[in-house]
């Protein structure tokens, strides 16, 4: 029997997870292919005189670690929400076609060979964001026509749109030239790049706002994750809550996807792992998923940076390779705790 969720317990767990995240971030900033001396990083800067230690530590590693936190938090948080809303353990942030929509957007940007940048973002990021948001809107309207907000209608619409857009991606891949194919493939595998502070600030703010908003919806999500009628009996406006939660989760996922491409597994595994350890209460699940998801992606990205140095692995490869086995161990242990046979 798990202890009841009290405000004290919530604050303690969230603070512990935040502390863990900050220490992992600090540790991962120290790891990399180049040797960086902290003394040189914080030494007095002479204008016009480049300080490679500072550039590497602050502009490359720290920026990348923060990016990993933002993306990991967004994916894990929206994964938790989608699983609850759709009452489907296989749901992940990409289930409603965001992945293929963003992929198609990225592919189109690559094929058109667009050169401009928007607020410092590459055209791939801008098109991927637009593709992701557009696809969710499309899936949502198909689902509404098909099943009046019925969960199955929405899921099926997501599957069909995903398949259709994937086919379009394959068609474009077949007529693309090799450098376009490579660019898209690496994007699809998920990649962390070093972004400017402006980009980190705005996307971090967006993801933060989304996560906080979802946290405030958590009690209502708890009721909806049982059934719509139970939630209605408790006086919850199910449709309104669902629209808000979907909107926010889709927005932060689209933001994450436009930053880093498609990183699988974080949004699926982290919420499940949190549920296995601390239970399914969304008030705890949402903040912990965000913090642990961010921590996990920072670790995975650090591995991807150093394991085949000087080259780098796509971080999506690492999340799946590392996350899969850890999750299986958790599942077996949970089963044992419940008295099931190993």
């Amino acid at each position: 029997m798990r202890p009841l969720l009290t405000p004290g317990r919530l604050v303690r767990l969230v603070l512990a997870a935040a502390l863990l995240m900050v220490s992992v971030m600090a540790a991962c900033c120290m790891v990399g292919t180049e040797t960086v001396s902290l003394k040189a990083v914080f030494a007095h800067q002479t204008p016009g005189q480049p300080n490679p230690d500072y550039e590497i530590f602050v502009k490359i590693r720290l920026a990348r670690v923060i990016l990993a936190v933002i993306v990991g938090a967004a994916l894990a948080c929206s994964g938790a929400v989608f699983q609850g809303l759709l009452r489907n353990p296989l749901a992940d942030p990409y289930i409603l076609g965001i992945s293929s929509g963003a992929g198609l957007g990225a592919m189109v940007a690559v094929m058109l060979g667009i050169q401009w940048t928007l607020w410092g973002r590459s055209p791939i990021a801008v098109f991927a964001f637009a593709g992701a948001v557009g696809t969710v809107a499309l899936v949502w309207s198909i689902g509404r026509v098909a099943g009046k907000y019925h969960v199955t209608g929405l899921l099926l619409a997501g599957v069909v749109v995903n398949a259709f857009f994937s086919a379009l991606i394959m068609f474009l891949t077949s007529i693309a030239n090799s450098s376009q194919i490579q660019t898209t493939l690496f994007w699809l595998m998920g990649n962390m790049t070093e972004e400017t502070w402006d980009v980190l600030w705005f996307s971090g703010g967006l993801v933060c706002a989304g996560a906080v908003g979802l946290f405030f919806l958590a009690p209502k999500l708890n009721a909806i994750s049982l059934s719509d009628s139970d939630a209605r009996n408790l006086g919850i406006h199910v449709t309104a809550v669902r629209v808000c939660a979907f909107g926010m989760a889709a927005m932060i996922t689209a933001c994450a996807v436009s930053l880093s491409g498609l990183i699988g597994f974080v949004g699926l595994i982290i919420p499940h792992a949190i549920r296995l350890i601390w239970g399914p209460d969304h008030r705890l699940l949402i903040p912990l998923s965000a913090l642990v998801g961010g921590t996990f992606l920072v670790l995975a990205d650090t591995v991807s940076r150093v394991v085949v140095a000087p080259a780098q692995l796509p971080v999506g490869v690492v999340t799946a390779l590392v996350g899969g086995p850890i999750f299986i161990v958790l599942l077996i242990r949970h089963n044992r705790c419940l008295g099931g046979r190993p």
């Binding site: 690496f186 070093e194 140095a309």
Partner: peptide
């Protein structure tokens, strides 16, 4: 395709020559 920005900056180059496709751009 998979360039290591940290390694590039660490070498303190005074000229980097890259190709014009998306990733290198």
């Amino acid at each position: 395709w998979q360039l290591n920005l940290e390694a590039i900056v660490g070498k303190q180059p005074d000229l980097v020559l890259a190709l014009g496709f998306q990733q290198q751009r």
